[in-house]
Amino acid sequence: MTYIGEKVNVLASFTGGIRPIKFKWSGRLVTVKEVTYTWKSREGQASVHHFSVTDGTSLYELSFHTQSLVWKLENLEA
């Protein structure tokens, strides 16, 4: 995996848990085909939700910080 650590805009569903649907990165729109794994970590009082997702070609790791409400693309395996 290559570390990216960049903020990204994500279209997500918050019904019955958080689920990223699409996100914009590096000028292109990535459609999430499968969320392969989810986990949570803590950063002080905030929870950070992590998502391993794939668009069928690459594997991305997204994170969502519950206090700053920031989505990040953490890692990428092209």
Binding site: T36, Y37, S52, L59
Partner: peptide, 10 residues
């Protein structure tokens, strides 16, 4: 197993 589940290529 967790890593294989996270990354379908594995």
């Amino acid at each position: 197993s967790v890593e294989q589940q996270s990354n379908p290529r594995l």
